[in-house]
């Protein structure tokens, strides 16, 4: 019976004590502890979020960099291609130009050669003619010392010139 008969004094002291403990622990222990734990948890959560954010940003930056790099590479290729094309064109043009010039020069040279040839021929002709006349003069002088011969020659010459 004594076991299940609660003592009044104990009930009184227990109620009083428990109430005081509750108030004191609430104010001086649980509130600060729970608040600190909450702060720490918040801090950890924020840190995790920030880390995640930073990671994502880094990824973005990396992607951006990759993109820029790819673009640059493409542009370079494009430029190289264009440069090659330009180069080829220039070379071709130069070739063509050179060919044209060469041809023209050749033409000119040929022309000049022709002209020179013509001149030379003409000069030669002149010279030959001069010499011929001289020779002819000399011959004629020697041969045409008589009148007969002179007459004969003139006739012959006339005949010949007619043939010309």
């Amino acid at each position: 019976m004594e076991l299940i008969t609660p003592g009044f004094g104990l009930i009184f002291w227990m109620t009083l004590t428990f109430l005081i403990v509750l108030i004191i622990l609430k104010k001086y222990a649980w509130k600060p502890i729970l608040e600190s734990i909450r702060q720490r948890e918040e801090f950890i959560n924020n840190s995790l979020k920030q880390a995640e954010e930073a990671r994502r940003q880094l990824e973005n930056v990396k992607n951006e960099a990759q993109k820029i790099l790819n673009q640059a590479r493409q542009e370079r290729e494009q430029m190289l291609k264009e440069a090659k094309e330009i180069h080829a064109r220039i070379v071709r043009q130069a070739d063509e130009e050179a060919k044209k010039i060469k041809e023209r020069r050749l033409q000119e040279a040929l022309q000049e050669i022709e002209n020179a040839k013509i001149n030379a021929v003409n000069e030669l002709k002149q010279f030959v003619a001069d010499i011929s006349i001289e020779i002819a003069e000399k011959i004629l002088r020697s041969e045409l010392s008589d009148k007969q011969a002179q007459k004969q020659f003139i006739e012959k010459m006339l005949k010949e010139s007619n043939l010309n």
């Binding site: 004590t17 403990v21 622990l25 001086y28 222990a29 509130k31 600060p32 608040e35 600190s36 734990i37």
Partner: peptide, 22 residues
């Protein structure tokens, strides 16, 4: 009760001083 106070009140003080340290 004294043991409870002796355990938890200094604990609360320490937590308040550096809430972010484990």
């Amino acid at each position: 009760v004294l043991i409870l106070f002796w355990i938890f009140i200094p604990m609360a003080k320490r937590y308040q001083q550096n809430p972010l340290s484990p």
